[in-house]
Simulated assay, not measured.
Amino acid sequence: MDEPFGAVLFDRDGTLIEDVPYNGDPARVTPMPGAREALRTLRARGLRTGVVSNQSGIGRGLLTRSQVRAVNARVEELLGRFGTWQICPHRPDEGCVCRKPAPGLVLDACEALGVEPARVVVVGDIGADVGAAEAAGATAVLVPTAVTRREEVVAAARTAPNLAAAIELIL
């Protein structure tokens, strides 16, 4: 493979699918504009794909692991299979090593996919996604949405207006 990257990891909510806070209902899953095409392009080029997602609703008692798995299964029905799913179930105050912006989810995804962090891109919509990528030694691309804070956009080394543009940066 001549690509400089071997894998692309995506945040789930607000990046791959529309953000529905604490969503445990697969019927409420709607892909973000361009998500199918972006993933099709990456997979056609032989890049591995994975998802890294904070799901504090589990730790907060608002969601069950089963509900999160059902939503993730619906994401795969709509967008195709991912090589790995890494989920942080912890509340923000638990101090775990996996919750973004900590590097744990990204590092675990890299291990699961067999790709060194330096050959991985993380695509997300908030600063925590960028922070997790950087902490793990991966490259980050921020795709801002209405919830992205201005200072997160300013601080990001690489931004793209949408998923299609993010894929152009990666390829």
Rank of each mutant, 00 (worst) to 15 (best):
L79A: 13
P4N: 01
V154D: 15
G24H: 11
A70Q: 14
G46K: 03
I17Y: 08
R48P: 00
D93R: 06
P117Q: 09
L142A: 04
E134W: 04
A35E: 09
G114Y: 11
R119V: 04
R65Y: 05
A112Y: 06
R74S: 11
L79E: 12
V75M: 14
E3M: 06
R150C: 01
V120S: 08
A70S: 15
Q55W: 09
V130F: 05
A7R: 00
Q86P: 06
L47Q: 03
A165G: 00
G127D: 13
T148S: 13
T139D: 00
L142Y: 05
P103D: 05
V123R: 07
E116F: 03
L113D: 10
V154K: 04
T64G: 13
V75G: 04
A146P: 01
G137P: 08
D108E: 15
T30S: 15
M1I: 02
A132S: 15
P92A: 06
N23A: 13
D129P: 04
V71P: 12
R36A: 15
F10P: 01
D125P: 11
L79C: 13
V122D: 07
A155Y: 05
A109H: 08
T139L: 06
E134A: 11
L62Q: 12
K100T: 07
N162V: 00
T15Q: 02
P103N: 07
V51Q: 09
L163P: 00
P92Q: 07
V143D: 10
G24Q: 12
N23Y: 08
Q55E: 12
G104D: 10
P31I: 08
E168T: 06
A155I: 02
G137F: 02
R81K: 15
R65L: 14
A133E: 05
D2H: 05
A133Q: 10
F5P: 01
L113C: 12
V71L: 12
E168S: 11
P161L: 02
S56K: 11
A140H: 02
V68W: 12
C88S: 13
V51L: 12
R12I: 12
A135W: 07
R36C: 05
A109V: 11
